[in-house]
């Protein structure tokens, strides 16, 4: 993990240098280069994320929580990360308006993903109160 992080840091710095060189003449390529470097970094980080997700699942099964409860939480977290990265890329391209739209869409999508949880809570409260 440490070796990968060092490699990732070097790759990120080199990509930032190359993007700054390209930005002067062809700024569109700087954006695509940043996107590619970001995708490479995410692809390397996803490996360690798998271990974290497995731990979460194991803890939830020990605690006696159903897996259906954990799914919306993970989906909401993934939607939040994706929306944030996309809106920052749009801002880097100079499109603040588009970034605001992406943020709003991410908020609505996260609400929609968390809906099953809220329904479960409402049903539980109805059962407890009656």
């Amino acid at each position: 993990m440490m070796e990968w992080m060092i490699r990732a840091a070097v790759v990120a710095v080199v990509a930032a240098l190359l993007a700054s060189v390209l930005r002067q003449s062809v700024p569109q390529f700087a954006l695509v280069l940043t996107l590619t470097a970001g995708v490479w970094l995410l692809a390397g980080a996803v490996d360690s994320l798998g271990a974290v997700v497995e731990l979460i699942n194991r803890l939830s099964s020990i605690a006696g929580v159903e897996p259906q409860v954990i799914q919306p939480v993970l989906k909401t977290a993934a939607i939040a990360v994706l929306a944030r990265l996309t809106s920052e890329m749009c801002r880097g391209a100079g499109e603040q308006g588009l970034a605001a739209f992406v943020d709003t869409a991410g908020t609505l999508a996260a609400l929609g993903a968390a809906l099953p949880l809220l329904e479960g809570v409402a049903e539980l409260m109805a059962v407890m109160l009656t």
């Binding site: 080199v14 990509a15 190359l18 390209l22 390529f29 280069l33 590619t36 470097a37 490479w40």
Partner: peptide
Amino acid sequence: DVDLIFKIAAIGILVA
């Protein structure tokens, strides 16, 4: 692969 990043940078410089 990391090479993809360098390929894109090379194509970008060529296009520039």
